[in-house]
């Protein structure tokens, strides 16, 4: 019987956290709460503005309705097509850069760390700059318009696609690659027949996902003058034509949903 071992159960105590862990956890929570309090102080919320927010919101919707449907064929449709073109062309240009840079960043494919590091630097640099900032830069180079927007989309996406593609390459199975090495195949052949079939679904899935993001991103590019539907929205807002703003917002909403559905359907067939 277990009672024959008196005291053993009582002497062995089980606690989830050691005292050091408990102090650490308390400290962590304390810092979190302090950070929230401090942030609330710095953003200087003016209570009066908060009180009439519901009224403002209602006013907004009243001014938006009824929508100015005539504005769609006049200014929105063309801009919408331009937005889609910016997103698509930008994504294609990005793929052309992301493919080589992604390969160079994969440690198993290029076992030479300075090159990996350089490639990763390019990818991080691309991601660390927001699309709108890229757009402002390219407007400086190419002037305002869709070209600047396209390049902005492309440059921002290289980092995203290249990073995920490089990681997919690093996660590919070693076995088939070993087998092809043993046949005497060249490095390029090993990539084409050993790595590429393994990462192909991931690559196209990443590209589609990025296109989906780019459709949304290119919709705001016009706010800084880089072409697309954002320009129509900017004009309407400056003229306080909220019934026209509503048309633009609805159009963007429909296109984003359509893009989402298209991507989901294509991806399902891909994998």
């Amino acid at each position: 019987m277990s009672a024959a071992l008196p005291g053993t159960a009582a002497e062995r105590e089980w606690v989830r956290h050691t005292p050091e862990q408990r102090i650490l956890r308390f400290g962590f929570y304390f810092v979190c709460v302090a950070a929230v309090v401090w942030s609330l102080k710095t953003i200087e919320i003016i209570p009066e503005f908060l009180y009439d927010a519901p009224a403002q919101l209602k006013d907004f919707f009243v001014r938006m309705w009824p929508m100015d449907a005539a504005y769609y064929p006049k200014s929105v449709h063309g801009a919408l097509i331009e937005t889609l073109n910016i997103a698509t062309l930008g994504t294609l240009i990005c793929l052309a850069f992301a493919l080589p840079v992604g390969i160079l960043s994969a440690r198993n494919l290029v076992p030479f760390w300075p090159i990996n590091l350089a490639a990763k630097f390019v990818l991080v640099a691309s991601r660390s700059v927001n699309t709108l900032v890229w757009a402002l830069l390219f407007i400086g180079i190419f002037g305002p318009g869709a070209l600047a927007g396209t390049m902005a989309i492309a440059f921002r996406s290289v980092g995203f696609v290249g990073k995920l593609f490089g990681e997919a390459l690093e996660e590919s199975h070693r076995g088939p690659v070993e087998a092809l090495t043993a046949t005497g195949a060249s490095k390029a052949s090993i990539f084409l027949k050993g790595y590429w079939p393994q990462v192909k679904p991931a690559f196209w899935s990443i590209a589609l996902f990025r296109w989906d993001i780019n459709v949304r991103e290119s919709a705001v590019l016009g706010l800084v003058g880089a072409g697309g539907i954002g320009m129509a929205m900017d004009t309407a807002m400056n003229l306080f034509r909220w019934d026209q703003v509503a048309v633009v917002l609805s159009a963007v909403f429909v296109v984003v949903i359509a893009a989402e559905v298209a991507v989901t359907l294509i991806r399902r067939r891909l994998i």
């Binding site: 076995g175 070993e178 087998a179 090495t181 027949k193 050993g194």
Partner: peptide, 20 residues
């Protein structure tokens, strides 16, 4: 690479390219 062509190899985990 030329020497490897003359040496065939069979693996425990087969090491086929699964998606081909």
């Amino acid at each position: 690479r030329n020497a490897r062509r003359k040496i065939g190899m069979v693996f425990q985990e087969y090491n086929l390219v699964e998606r081909l």
